[in-house]
Amino acid sequence: MEVKATTKYFAEFIGTMVLVLVGCGSAVFAGGHIGFMGVSFAFGLSVLTMVYTIGPISGCHINPAISISMTVAGKLSTQDALGYIVSQCLGAAVGAGIIYFIANGNPDYDISANGLAANGYGTGSPDGYSMIAGLVAEIVFTALFLLVIFGATSEQAPEGFAGIAIGLALVMIHLVTIPVTNTSVNPARSLGPALFVGGDALSQLWLFWVGPIIGGIIAAIIWKSLFSK
């Protein structure tokens, strides 16, 4: 049975909200306890669980870079891509808003000091990496992420394991790139926290749209040109 477009869009809204709520929430609420490794697994596990929850409904993109890449690869219509991206951005904003509301329940929390797990470069980078370093990291690791997604969801891949491969790939990417940009590879994930943090997080947001989208397009071209039958 064909799924209604509005149902798919709502699934993308929910999935992206969960990604931000769990991933960014782990950094804001528990980062001091679980460290970079724990945050990496929180992001990966959120995607893994959502793949099996909303994957049958929308494909579980929960990431504008994925939706654009799938459109370039001919796997998603332009109309659905636009609906997905709007839904993902709204879901990310709601997820970030929930984190911000809960965080304010701690009298020691200050968004200007503690942040909201926003992405950044330069002074916004956890380890002070430059804009160029951040851009290259976002392009390369988004491309790698999309190649995993294309491969894990291809007809030749073992059935039922795509969510595990995709979730673990996101863990892998976070383990490497959190010190560089706080890891985006997802424009919606970057948008949500930036809306509340403002300042540099908002002014630097362009990089976390441009980088992942370029990376996703590169992956789509590589997959179609070299690996797709």
Rank of each mutant, 00 (worst) to 15 (best):
E2G: 10
V3A: 10
F10I: 13
A11E: 01
A11D: 04
E12C: 01
I14A: 10
T16C: 05
L19C: 03
L19G: 06
V20M: 03
G23E: 01
G23W: 02
C24T: 13
G25C: 05
A27L: 05
A27F: 05
H33S: 12
I34N: 05
G35Q: 13
G38L: 04
S46H: 08
S46Y: 07
L48D: 06
T49N: 10
T53I: 11
T53E: 03
G55T: 06
I57D: 12
I57W: 11
S58M: 06
C60V: 01
A65P: 03
I68E: 12
K75F: 08
S77W: 09
S77T: 15
T78L: 13
D80V: 07
Y84N: 09
V86P: 00
V86M: 09
C89E: 10
L90W: 00
G95W: 01
A96N: 08
G97V: 04
I98R: 01
I98P: 05
I99Q: 10
Y100K: 09
Y100I: 04
F101A: 14
D110W: 11
I111A: 09
S112P: 06
S112E: 12
A113C: 09
G115T: 07
T123L: 12
T123E: 14
G124Y: 06
G124I: 02
G124K: 09
P126I: 08
P126V: 10
D127I: 09
G128V: 12
Y129I: 00
M131V: 14
I132W: 12
V136S: 05
I139V: 15
V140S: 00
V140A: 12
A143I: 07
A152R: 05
S154F: 12
E159H: 14
A162F: 07
I164V: 15
A165W: 02
H174K: 12
P179A: 10
P179L: 12
N182R: 08
T183A: 07
N186K: 04
P187S: 05
P187C: 00
A188E: 11
L191T: 05
L195A: 02
G198V: 00
A201N: 06
F208K: 06
P212Y: 03
G216R: 01
G216Y: 07
I222L: 15
W223F: 13
F227R: 00
F227T: 09
